[in-house]
Design a protein around this nucleic acid. Structure first.
Lengths: 103, 103
DNA sequence: TACGAAGATGCTTATATGGTAATATAGGAC
DNA sequence: GTCCTATATTACCATATAAGCATCTTCGTA
């Protein structure tokens, strides 16, 4: 797979708010107002982050009445996020261990 | 795992050159001049991308005489890249399928 | 010590990103 | 149609990123 395409996928995911959105959606579909409530960001900021995920087609959406419901486009998307969390955890574990060695 | 830490990991990986570096290193350790040769970018650009990966501690390095050898800090790093490639491939497949439907 | 090769860093410039505030659009209820 | 709610979009600003070029550092060797 082209490195450019991979990088585009990772770039779309590389923001704390967008990670949080994907984490939420991995547990079930949600409308914008529910995401907004859970994340506690501003509405325009959230909308922009959703548009980044949409542009890369990592999420899909559909209207239900006057709400827009978002869902992950593929379960693979949450695989990326989980793997990144694991790496982040490894990094923190190493850091803790090295502090203990130094102490 | 904090969304901030995950995002930092993904951000460090979200550039085509850095994806390519990780792909190469997932097959074995390499010194800078070998990576440079395989990627065909400029030396300062490569060095900067390596420093981004180093700063996030996704790669480790050691000097061997005149050369600096880089390696992945954890095999989990290449799991992220592989997962992103799979998503990128799914996206392209869907795109191809929709073009065929439209034709 | 002087020199060459391997890498890293600093500076500048162009572009991308993210936040905020204001505005726009679409659907539902009346 | 009018109003209200949910969501998207725009314009603007500050900051971050990436590339290119020049320079510096470190090691190996004569």
């Amino acid at each position: 797979m082209s490195a450019i395409a991979c990088a585009a996928v990772l770039k779309a995911l590389s923001h704390p708010t967008r990670i949080a959105i994907v984490s939420l959606l991995s547990e079930g579909d949600l409308c914008v107002c529910e995401i907004l409530e859970k994340l506690g960001t501003t509405q325009p900021a959230l909308s922009k982050h959703l548009s980044v995920l949409r542009a890369e087609r990592l999420v899909a959406h559909s209207r239900q009445g006057n709400r827009i419901v978002y869902r992950l486009a593929s379960p693979q998307v949450s695989v990326i996020v989980r793997a990144s969390c694991q790496v982040a955890k490894e990094l923190l574990d190493w850091e803790l261990a090295s502090w203990e060695r130094d102490a």
